[in-house]
Amino acid sequence: MAKGMLLPLLLASGLAFAESPTADEDGFTHPLRNLEFNPGLDQREFERATFQALDVYDPFESMNRRIYHFNYRLDQWVMLPVVRGYRYVTPQPVRTGVSNFFANLGEIPTLFNSVAQLKGQRAANATARFLFNTILGVGGVWDPATRMGLVRQSEDFGQTLGYWGVPQGPYLIIPALGPSNLRDATGRVADFAVERQMDFLQYSETTGGEMSLTALRAVNARHVTSFRYGQLNSPFEYEKVRYVYSRARDLLVEE
């Protein structure tokens, strides 16, 4: 009886042992042993790649750095305390509703920009999302479209300009808003103008005041952005953010 149980167990342990990569007598598997390394005189790829990545067109660097530190302080002393207060006074469903509402507003520029980039499928997706969420989701507070399998894919005018071959231009840090470049900053203004023209369902009038809506939008924008200054914990945060921003925008345009 006992023997009948033990034998398969023994076999199994033997098998498991055979499957694992060759371990030495300590049980260590030497993970670096099978890697292929460059010959000694040709070991500069990391440095070369990183130096190239650092090369972002940034003629206004000293100005940008000042604004960067200004934004950092603004974030620590104003934005984040406000967001903490907002999280304290509102329950989770309300915050989700607010995020959905503003995300739904964002479908309008996405629609325009998808059309402008001749992306028919994406334009249809944005239209469908906007209609479902506005009608079924009570003005965009719920997001039934995502549950139906329509994924949110945003497009902005900066991406449209990029699609038509406009280069990024000089890197800029916009006060209170953060990293951008000449092309995307222009795009932001254009998107804003489009939204203004639409004045979606006269929400600003019915909710009583442009100011409070804009304020809520700003708070929500900070609430949904997970970036925290100082989290990279590097004296070179400025350079790292600059690279990631520029490269991410390139990827979004290419995609």
């Binding site: 460059n38 070991q43 790829e45 990391f46 790649a49 190239q52 490269r247 990827l251």
Partner: peptide, 23 residues
């Protein structure tokens, strides 16, 4: 960082190779 990565030449770097794949 001294490993030999295929596909790197004078026109592209290690990061670009990885990002290219992601794209």
């Amino acid at each position: 960082v001294q490993t030999r990565v295929d596909g790197i030449n004078d026109h592209t770097t290690f990061y670009e190779v990885v990002l290219e794949k992601l794209t």
